[in-house]
């Protein structure tokens, strides 16, 4: 079975679950004639259930028709470089809270540029330092956006680095 059909089936099951789950245990509104909070989502979910079911059928028929293009294998669809890149992005999204903006951004930039092809260590470190510094100056100093400082020792490191930059 193709990746697309599997994703569609999972999404269909999620829609059915949401259709049943939305509005359960909520007291009806005291305002006369008002639409309940589940009415609009249920209308959309009903549409989605019909559309996704039809899509699964059509995709299955298309995939099994004579002369259908070959299915892309999982490894080709999501190569290791892609998975590693996304893991780094997730690490950055989570790490920014704990390591602080400066530390996590520097790690992310150097690691990500390595994953997508940069091999010169000096360029990697210099690139990480410059982009972290520039973004910090633009957003934190000029635009007064409070960038995260992290927790524990990383907060101390962030404060010390901020003093250096400022």
């Amino acid at each position: 079975m193709g990746i697309e059909i599997i994703v569609n089936i999972v999404f269909l099951l999620f829609c059915v679950f949401c259709f049943i789950h939305v509005g359960v245990g909520v007291q009806p509104l005291a305002i006369p004639g008002a639409l309940s909070g589940s009415a609009w989502p249920r209308t959309i979910l009903a549409g989605l259930i019909v559309a996704v079911t039809l899509n699964i059928y059509l995709t299955y028929r298309k995939n099994h028709a004579p002369g259908a293009p070959r299915e892309i294998p999982f490894k080709e669809f999501m190569p290791p470089k892609f998975i590693l890149s996304f893991v780094l992005m997730l690490f950055y999204a989570i790490g920014i809270n704990y390591l602080g903006f400066i530390v996590s951004t520097f790690i992310f930039i150097t690691a990500f540029s390595y994953v997508i092809g940069l091999r010169e260590k000096i360029k990697m470190i210099f690139g990480g330092l410059v982009s972290t510094g520039v973004i910090y100056i633009v957003f934190q100093i000029f635009l007064q956006v409070m960038l995260p400082r992290g927790v524990g020792i990383f907060r101390e490191i962030s404060l010390w680095l901020e003093l250096l930059i400022q």
């Binding site: 989570i94 809270n97 951004t105 540029s113 997508i116 940069l118 982009s131 956006v145």
Partner: peptide
């Protein structure tokens, strides 16, 4: 080169998303 531009785009995207509400959940 894209090995420098790619991380920069992600960085802008992350900080831009964060800046709108000062919420790290938005980066995720």
């Amino acid at each position: 080169p894209y090995y420098s531009l790619g991380p920069l785009i992600i960085l802008f995207a992350a900080v831009g998303s964060y800046a709108a509400q000062n919420n790290t959940g938005d980066v995720m």
